[in-house]
Amino acid sequence: MSKRLNDKVALITGAASGQGAAELALFVKEGAKVIATDVNTKLLNQHVADLTKEYGDVVLPLKLDVKKEEDWVEAVAQGLKKFKKIDILVNNAGIGITDNTSGLTDSTVEDWHLFMDTNAMGHFLGMKHVVPEMKKIGGGSIINISSLASVQGIAGASPYTASKGASRAFTKGAARDLGKYNIRVNSVLPGWIVTPMMQAFTLNKALLDSLIAGIPLGHLGDPEDVAYPVLFLASDEAKYVNGAELIVDGGQSVRG
Rank of each mutant, 00 (worst) to 15 (best):
K82R: 13
V230T: 12
D106G: 15
G31E: 11
G153A: 04
A213E: 15
A213C: 11
K239T: 07
N204S: 09
G140V: 01
T202Y: 10
S147N: 10
R255S: 02
G139I: 00
L51E: 03
N119F: 13
V59R: 01
G243E: 09
Q46D: 14
R184V: 01
N119R: 10
F170D: 01
V73S: 01
L231G: 02
N144E: 07
E245D: 13
A169G: 07
M116H: 10
H123D: 12
P223N: 12
L43W: 03
T13I: 13
K68H: 05
V28H: 07
I97V: 15
M134L: 05
I142A: 05
L207Y: 15
R4Q: 12
K63Q: 14
K205H: 11
R176C: 07
D71Y: 13
G191Y: 00
R176G: 03
K128Y: 06
S147I: 14
A120E: 04
I143S: 04
L51M: 06
G140M: 00
G138A: 06
S158A: 14
E70F: 06
I183C: 01
A25F: 08
H113Y: 13
T101G: 05
K42N: 11
L114D: 07
E110T: 15
L125Q: 04
E69W: 08
L60S: 03
D57H: 09
N6H: 09
S150D: 06
L43R: 11
I88C: 07
G153F: 04
N119V: 14
I247T: 11
A93M: 11
G96P: 05
A155Q: 15
A10V: 13
N186T: 07
D7F: 12
N40P: 00
E69T: 08
G214P: 03
G56N: 05
V194E: 02
T118Q: 09
D38Q: 09
D65R: 10
E245C: 05
F124D: 00
Y181A: 06
L5C: 02
M127C: 08
I145L: 15
L64A: 07
I35S: 08
V151M: 11
G18V: 00
V185E: 00
P196I: 06
Y228D: 09
A93R: 03
I247F: 07
Y181P: 01
G18W: 00
G79A: 08
G179P: 04
Q78K: 14
G179W: 01
Y55L: 06
A21R: 15
L43K: 12
G256A: 12
K33G: 03
G103F: 10
L211E: 09
V241W: 01
K205W: 07
A244L: 05
A22M: 13
E133P: 02
G221E: 08
L148F: 08
L26P: 03
V230D: 01
R184K: 11
S141K: 02
H129S: 04
L60I: 08
K81C: 02
G243V: 13
A169M: 13
L231D: 01
L26E: 02
S163V: 06
N92S: 13
